[in-house]
Every structure is written in structure tokens, then in C-alpha cells.
């Protein structure tokens, strides 16, 4: 006897276990980032006039715009990798998944430069509440990216073994990893305008 619906969707719910699991996980992530965004708003309201605005002006919009494009591109490639598997093309999957990981690494490197620049100009989380929010939220987001990279690397190398034995289940895994990856992108799409452009 096996655990049912690990691969095929259950007729009355219309999803397989893993997909429901990842959606639920993302719901909790929304609550996590939702709490942080609410905190941001509250702290912003309580901050002295102009303080946040001045701090924002030290952020580098070009860097961040570039990073936004990188993440959007990686969202596309991760879909392509899943689509390749759907079309039974493991080779293409490898290329697209590899690209996704690569783009994520580019994002992290750029972010690293950005952080480094801030530190070298003497802006630290403790500088003021804006920087506290900025570093905490982008840092937490970066941690999510790193988590995604680790999972994707696993799926790219050792995880691929599953393709031989259970191709459908493997494809599902890529779908779930992709959903997570979209979510991480989405968080950035919120973070970018709010932190860099609006305040």
C-alpha cells in the first residue's frame, strides 16, 4: 500500500499532494512577508519627516532595476524547464534549470555589491529604521533565494535520478519548485518599488 495522490491529482480536490503542500506553504510565506510589510508601513508612519526619503535616495535604483529584470528572466526560465520536462526533453530541462540557478546567482552577486557599497559608506541596519527595514527585508528575501538555489541545484544534479524511475513525479517536483520560485520573484516585485521608489 502506498500513500495515494503523490503523482496523480485527487479527483475531488483536483491537485496532487505536493502541489497543495506548496500552495499552503506559500500562504504562510505571504503571512510572513505580510507581517513585515505592515511593520514597514507602521514604522514609516512613525518616522520623522524626510528621514526615510533621504535614506532611500542612497539606494541604487539601476542595480535594483537590473536585478528585477534578472529575477523576471529566471521566472521565465524556470517555467521553460518545467515545460521541457512536460515535452520529455531532459536536456533542455537541464539548460533552463541551469540558467535559472545562474540568474539567481547573478542576483545574489549584484545584491552583494549593493550591500557592500552601503556598508562602505557607513550605512548599517542600525543606522536608522529605514536601513533596518531595508537590510532585514532584502536579507530575508536573499535567504529565500539561497534556499531556492539549493533546492534547484539538488533538482538539477542528484535529483534528476528520479526522472528515470518516476518521470511524472519528477516533473511535479519541478512544478512545485517553480511555484516557490515565482513567489520569491513576486516578493521582490513588491520590495523593489516600495523600498526603492515609493517612500
Amino acid at each position: 500500500m502506498e500513500i495515494p495522490y503523490t503523482v496523480q491529482p485527487r479527483p475531488d480536490t483536483g491537485v496532487y499532494n505536493g502541489k497543495m503542500g506548496i500552495w499552503l506553504f506559500l500562504a504562510s510565506e505571504i503571512m510572513l512577508f505580510g507581517a513585515l510589510f505592515s511593520s514597514l508601513i507602521l514604522l514609516y508612519i512613525g518616522s520623522p519627516e524626510g528621514l526615510w526619503h533621504d535614506s532611500v535616495s542612497h539606494l541604487s535604483v539601476p542595480f535594483a532595476t537590473f536585478n528585477t529584470l534578472v529575477l523576471i528572466a529566471s521566472s521565465v526560465t524556470v517555467v521553460m524547464s518545467w515545460a521541457s520536462l512536460k515535452m520529455q526533453d531532459l536536456g533542455k530541462y537541464r539548460i533552463y534549470m541551469g540558467l535559472t540557478v545562474l540568474l539567481a546567482l547573478v542576483f545574489l552577486v549584484v545584491k552583494g555589491f549593493e550591500y557592500n557599497e552601503k556598508f562602505s559608506h557607513g550605512y548599517f541596519p542600525k543606522t536608522n529604521t529605514f536601513y533596518a527595514v531595508y537590510f532585514t527585508m532584502t536579507g530575508l528575501h536573499a535567504l529565500h533565494i539561497i534556499g531556492g538555489v539549493i533546492v534547484n541545484l539538488y533538482l538539477l544534479f542528484p535529483g534528476t535520478k528520479m526522472w528515470e524511475t518516476e518521470p511524472e513525479r519528477f516533473t511535479n517536483r519541478i512544478e512545485c519548485a517553480g511555484l516557490y520560485w515565482h513567489f520569491v520573484d513576486l516578493v521582490w516585485i513588491f520590495l523593489f518599488p516600495i523600498l526603492y521608489l515609493m517612500l
Binding site: L24, M31, L32, S39, P125, K126, V133, T136, L140
Partner: peptide, 25 residues
């Protein structure tokens, strides 16, 4: 548990920052 715990996780992270990184959330 799924929906209520994450805000506390956020609070925990922010409080850790206040303690260890001297932020002022």
C-alpha cells in the same frame, strides 16, 4: 498554525535584529 505563526516569526526575527544588530524596530 499555518497562518498565525509567521507573523510571530517576523516578530522574532525583528527582535533578534534589535538585540544582535542594534536596530530599533
Amino acid at each position: 498554525l499555518l497562518l498565525a505563526f509567521p507573523p510571530l516569526e517576523a516578530a522574532g526575527i525583528l527582535q533578534l535584529m534589535d538585540r544582535l544588530a542594534e536596530t530599533s524596530f
